[in-house]
Amino acid sequence: MTIQPARLSDPAVRAFVSAVNSHDRDGFLALLAPGATMSDDGSDRDLDDWIDREIFSSHGHLDVDNESDGGHTLLARYRNDAWGEMRTRWSFTVDDDGRISRFETGQA
């Protein structure tokens, strides 16, 4: 059963999922701490290049199936125009100011 983004526990993660699903690149970037980093399948990636390719230019969309770790870890079905749909895990490091300093994703 899918968890609606508005029902996700952590406000930063909730806003992240909402920005991805509404294709709001500016809103997405505003959620990230300065110098934020990310990894995909265990390899660090260039954040700007990755989000453009994997989320915004390819119409990425997250359907969250489960959350854990206080809302900082998600199991979700992720789809985009490049890869279709796959089961993924997302984990987030949220700073004290409520911004995301790192996210990691990969196939689950």
Results as ranks from 00 to 15, higher is better:
18 S>L: 13
78 Y>P: 03
9 S>G: 07
96 D>Y: 10
103 F>Q: 08
21 N>M: 07
12 A>E: 07
29 L>Y: 08
34 P>G: 03
94 V>I: 08
29 L>N: 12
40 D>A: 14
87 R>K: 09
105 T>M: 12
85 E>C: 11
38 M>K: 01
42 G>Y: 02
94 V>K: 03
28 F>K: 01
68 S>C: 10
108 A>P: 04
89 R>H: 02
95 D>R: 15
78 Y>T: 02
62 L>D: 11
6 A>L: 10
81 D>L: 07
52 D>L: 09
28 F>S: 00
98 G>P: 11
94 V>C: 11
48 D>E: 15
84 G>Q: 06
47 L>T: 00
27 G>Y: 10
21 N>R: 08
60 G>K: 09
19 A>Y: 00
27 G>W: 09
39 S>P: 06
14 R>C: 07
52 D>I: 01
7 R>S: 13
61 H>V: 06
65 D>E: 15
57 S>Q: 13
12 A>Y: 02
89 R>C: 01
73 T>I: 06
98 G>H: 12
56 F>A: 03
76 A>Y: 00
70 G>F: 03
36 A>C: 05
20 V>I: 15
90 W>R: 02
20 V>G: 04
53 R>E: 10
102 R>A: 09
86 M>I: 10
2 T>C: 06
74 L>H: 09
104 E>K: 15
68 S>T: 15
96 D>N: 14
101 S>R: 15
25 R>Y: 10
85 E>H: 03
3 I>S: 05
23 H>F: 12
33 A>F: 10
90 W>P: 01
48 D>V: 14
68 S>E: 12
38 M>P: 00
54 E>T: 13
66 N>C: 09
27 G>H: 10
42 G>V: 02
65 D>S: 12
2 T>V: 14
39 S>L: 02
76 A>F: 01
22 S>P: 04
18 S>D: 13
99 R>L: 05
6 A>S: 13
73 T>V: 13
60 G>T: 12
27 G>L: 08
47 L>F: 00
37 T>K: 14
73 T>N: 06
15 A>Q: 11
8 L>W: 03
81 D>Q: 13
85 E>R: 11
45 R>Y: 11
67 E>M: 05
54 E>A: 13
23 H>V: 07
34 P>Q: 06
53 R>F: 08
72 H>R: 15
103 F>N: 08
1 M>P: 12
104 E>F: 10
72 H>D: 04
1 M>G: 13
102 R>S: 06
100 I>F: 08
25 R>W: 07
83 W>C: 05
76 A>G: 00
46 D>W: 08
84 G>F: 05
71 G>T: 00
90 W>L: 09
